[in-house]
């Protein structure tokens, strides 16, 4: 099965909003061992100048992967999910993500490259607030490992 290269350059309509909840921020911080009180103590976050609890630096992967799933899970895209590994990840934060944010993801397929029997797909998700202002951008490269040769 080959990845459908005609998807390159395609931009999807915005996803439904992802609501950033306080408990989700606290739980994610605990899962990655993020010790800052800004992730769990509302008074500490507000004293530091933030509207609400601050999300850890990689929290954006949650709404980003939901956005990226529009491509990965699309049967027409031709991605065999059982052969997918995460190759590269990059986040650019335009402003901090805090609890209470409503984030919609706009997915663009930046590239599909083949080499060495593998296919690499780079997806970009721009996370936007309700006023369409950019909050964070996720660049994910997945590698679809080729079938072993007999």
């Amino acid at each position: 099965m080959a990845v459908n290269e005609s998807f390159v350059g395609r931009t999807y309509p915005p996803t439904e909003p992802f609501h950033v909840g306080r408990e989700a921020v606290r739980d994610f911080a605990a899962a990655v061992g993020a010790g800052s009180p800004l992730h769990r103590d509302l008074a500490a976050a507000q004293d530091a100048g933030y509207r609400d609890l601050v999300a850890p630096p990689t929290f954006a992967i949650i709404p980003a992967q939901r956005s990226d799933a529009q491509f990965v899970a699309d049967p027409d895209a031709g991605v065999d999910y059982s052969r997918v590994v995460h190759g590269e990840q990059r986040f650019v934060h335009h402003r901090p993500i805090v609890a209470g944010d409503e984030l919609r993801g706009v997915l663009t397929i930046d590239s599909v490259r083949s080499g060495g029997g593998h296919t690499m797909v780079t997806m970009r998700t721009d996370l936007l607030d309700p006023d369409d202002q950019p909050v964070a951008t996720s660049h994910s490269t997945i590698v679809i490992r080729g079938e072993e040769q007999a």
Partner: peptide
Amino acid sequence: MGAAIEAVTDWVGDPARVLEYRT
């Protein structure tokens, strides 16, 4: 990736100061 950045956020003093992170 998420656990490794603690070395940086702990050093800088505020996790919201990470503008870009890649690997």
